[in-house]
C-alpha cells in the first residue's frame, strides 16, 4: 500500500532522513521505533507534506501513486491520516465544525456528496460515545484547554470520523495514563481491516502491548537499521537502542 524507497529529506538544510526504505502492505500494522532524534517525526511530516520538510531524493508511492507530488489536503483525501504527537489548538473553531469541514472537503475531493448535518451529528455522537468523549466537548474550540489525554482522544475521534485508509500514529501514547491508553488503543484497533494499513511511531514498547504490530522497524540516524516481528520490540525494551545507534554510526 505504502512504499518508501531510499528517501532523503532535510529540515533547515540539515539531512534527517538518509536513505529510508519501507514497505507497508494493506492490512498490516507496522511499528517504527527508534531513539530520540532518529527522524521519526520527520518521517511522519514528510509523508503528510508539511512545509519545511524537504525531500531531496527518493520516492514515496501510495497505492502506486506518487504521494510526494500531492498537497497535504490531497494526501488526506487519498486517506492518509496523521495523529499528531502534539495536536494543535484551534481557537474559535468548535471541534464539530472543524471535523465536519474536513470530512466534507475530503468527500468533495473524492467526488462524494456532502454529509448532511443530522447524519454527521449522529455519527459524531456514536464515535464520541465509543471513545468516552463527552459530546459537549465537541462544541468547544478544538483542543483549546484540553488535557494531553483529551487531545489524543480527539485525534482518534477525528480518525474514526474521517475513516482514513493509511494511519500514522506519531507517539500517540505520550502523555496518556493507562486507562486513556486502553481507550485510544481500542479506537485504533477498531479501525484495523484488510484494506487499511497503519504506521505506529513510538519510542516505547508499551503502546505495542495494546496495538499489536505485524512488523517492527528500528529507525536510527535517518535509516531503517533493523526489521523483525513483534519480538524485536521486546528486545529493544530489554536492551535499549545502543546497539542500533552504533550500527547506524
Amino acid at each position: 500500500m505504502l512504499s518508501v524507497k531510499d528517501l532523503h529529506a532535510e529540515v533547515d538544510g540539515k539531512e534527517i532522513l538518509k536513505g529510508l526504505s519501507l514497505e507497508v502492505p494493506a492490512g498490516e500494522v507496522h511499528a517504527i521505533m527508534g531513539p530520540n532524534g532518529a527522524g521519526k517525526s520527520t518521517l511522519s511530516y514528510v509523508l503528510t507534506g508539511r512545509q519545511g520538510y524537504d525531500v531531496t531524493s527518493g520516492k514515496v508511492t501510495f497505492e502506486g501513486e506518487d504521494l510526494l507530488a500531492l498537497e497535504p489536503d490531497e494526501r488526506a483525501a487519498k486517506g492518509v491520516f496523521l495523529s499528531f504527537q502534539y495536536p494543535l489548538e484551534i481557537p474559535g473553531v468548535p471541534a464539530l465544525t472543524f471535523i465536519r469541514t474536513a470530512l466534507n472537503a475530503q468527500r468533495k475531493a473524492r467526488g462524494e456528496p456532502e454529509v448532511s448535518a443530522p447524519e454527521f451529528l449522529k455519527l459524531a455522537r456514536a464515535k464520541a460515545g465509543e471513545l468516552k468523549i463527552d459530546f459537549d466537548m465537541l462544541k468547544r474550540a478544538l483542543n483549546v484547554g484540553f488535557s494531553g489525554g483529551e487531545k489524543k482522544r480527539m485525534e482518534i475521534l477525528q480518525m474514526a470520523m474521517l475513516s482514513p485508509r493509511f494511519l500514522i500514529l506519531d507517539e500517540t501514547d505520550s502523555g496518556l495514563d493507562i486507562d486513556a491508553l486502553r481507550i485510544v488503543a481500542d479506537g485504533v484497533n477498531a479501525l484495523r481491516s484488510p484494506d487499511r494499513a497503519m504506521l505506529v511511531i513510538t519510542h516505547y514498547q508499551r503502546l505495542l502491548d495494546y496495538i499489536r504490530p505485524d512488523r517492527v522497524h528500528v529507525l536510527s540516524a535517518g535509516r531503517i537499521v533493523a526489521s523483525g516481528g513483534p519480538e524485536l520490540a521486546l528486545e529493544l525494551e530489554r536492551e535499549g537502542y545502543d546497539k542500533y545507534a552504533r550500527a547506524a554510526a
Binding site: T48, R50, Q51, E71, P72, D73, R75, A76, A77, F81, L82, F84, P87, L88, I90, F98, I99, T101, A102, L103, A105, Q106, A109, Q158, L162
Partner: peptide
C-alpha cells in the same frame, strides 16, 4: 497544516 492534513484545501 493541521487543518490541511485533515483534508481541507
Amino acid at each position: 497544516f493541521y487543518a490541511r492534513q485533515r483534508g481541507m484545501p
